[in-house]
């Protein structure tokens, strides 16, 4: 059941990313390009995605997950060094190539060699992240 939901969700996610245009790096960079020819498509995608998700969060109040267990708790409103520094680094890379992790995966079949180069670099970055996070924590502790 758990695998069924993972496949259903992954398939919908991939299809949505392709059909929305979000695996086209021109459209993503076009949204981030406030000083050029601005493309608002990404805002429609985000807005569209919020609707079912907001309904789903409402539904979590009166039930438990189908496979059992409990829903993830709302994380405390702590804006630590990890959250801010990580988001800045992510944004820089996102603007540079126009790909974030979802579209990088969804476009693998038609993204050419460049898509695999991006994926490989992204996986290396993910591998290095725990070390970088510990460094940030030590800096926070020292401050």
């Amino acid at each position: 059941m758990r695998i069924f939901f993972a496949i259903l969700s992954g398939g919908l996610f991939g299809a949505g990313l392709l059909l929305s245009g979000m695996t086209n790096t021109n459209k993503v960079q076009g949204f981030l390009d406030l000083f050029g020819n601005w493309d608002p498509t990404l805002a429609f995608v985000m807005g569209g995605a919020m609707i079912p998700m907001a309904i789903a969060w409402q539904m979590t109040k009166s039930r438990t997950p189908v496979i059992g267990g409990s829903f993830p708790e709302m994380p405390a409103a702590e804006f630590d060094r990890r959250l801010i520094t990580g988001s800045i680094l992510f944004g820089l890379g996102w603007g540079l190539a126009g790909l974030c992790p979802g579209p990088a995966i969804a476009s693998l079949s038609y993204g050419g060699t460049g898509g695999f180069v991006f994926l490989a670099a992204m996986l290396i970055g993910m591998r290095l992240a725990p070390t970088a996070s510990r460094y940030l924590d030590s800096r926070s502790a020292a401050a």
């Binding site: 520094t85 990580g86 800045i88 680094l89 992510f90």
Partner: peptide, 15 residues
Amino acid sequence: IAVAGLLVGLGTRIA
């Protein structure tokens, strides 16, 4: 591509 991928992987996991 490589620099961007590295930043995206690093940043998303740190955050």
